[in-house]
């Protein structure tokens, strides 16, 4: 058994310590938002936050995650009560198929917490490990920019990185 801290909750997991976090989140903890894209750390669809840093969960074994805080898209809000970034993605209709979006939101969340005054160029740089195949890029950039501006004008729990 390994105990993981996921979205502020301790979660006991019965899995081989070599199992990548992605599979534990999806298969054991039944969280949908963290997505399998490549298993190689090349596309970003599986991105979550660990202790405030964006990481590829598809290549991060759970053995290194004891006593560390894992945060997933589910930890930012719900469709009824979306978090700041989630709200911005809805407002900008920043998705087509939407499969790549949660990973991008998690990396943007890490940016928002570390550098709320990030520029548009910073946003592009930050998102460069992420692939979107539908071509929703323009909207995604707008959504992240919108959330960052909103965080600056009205700091909330989102910007302070507290788990909800």
């Amino acid at each position: 058994m390994i105990t993981l801290n996921v979205n502020g909750q301790p979660r006991e997991v019965d899995a081989d310590p070599a199992t990548p976090l992605l599979y534990v989140l999806r298969d054991h903890l039944e969280l949908n938002g963290t997505r399998f894209g490549c298993g190689l750390g090349q596309c970003g669809a599986c991105t979550v936050m660990v202790d405030g840093e964006a990481v590829f969960s598809c290549i991060t074994p759970i053995s290194v995650l004891q006593n560390r805080r894992v945060r997933t898209i589910e930890g930012l809000g719900t469709s009824e009560n979306p978090g700041l970034l989630q709200r911005a993605f809805i407002d900008e209709q920043a998705a087509q198929c939407g499969y790549c979006i949660p990973g991008m939101i998690m990396r943007a969340q890490a940016l928002l917490e570390k550098k709320p005054a990030a520029t548009d160029a910073d946003i592009r740089d930050t998102l460069s490990p992420h692939l979107c195949r539908c071509g929703a890029h323009m909207r995604i950039l707008r959504a992240v920019g919108r959330a960052l501006r909103a965080a600056q004008s009205a700091p909330t729990a989102d910007a302070e990185g507290r788990d909800r």
Binding site: N32, G33, S79, P82, F89, I90, A95, P102
Partner: peptide, 18 residues
């Protein structure tokens, strides 16, 4: 606004993968 986007950006079950 698209009916499916709120669920997709919050980790709701959206795909056959889920």
């Amino acid at each position: 606004p698209r009916v499916d986007i709120p669920r997709k950006v919050t980790g709701g079950a959206s795909y056959v993968q889920d």
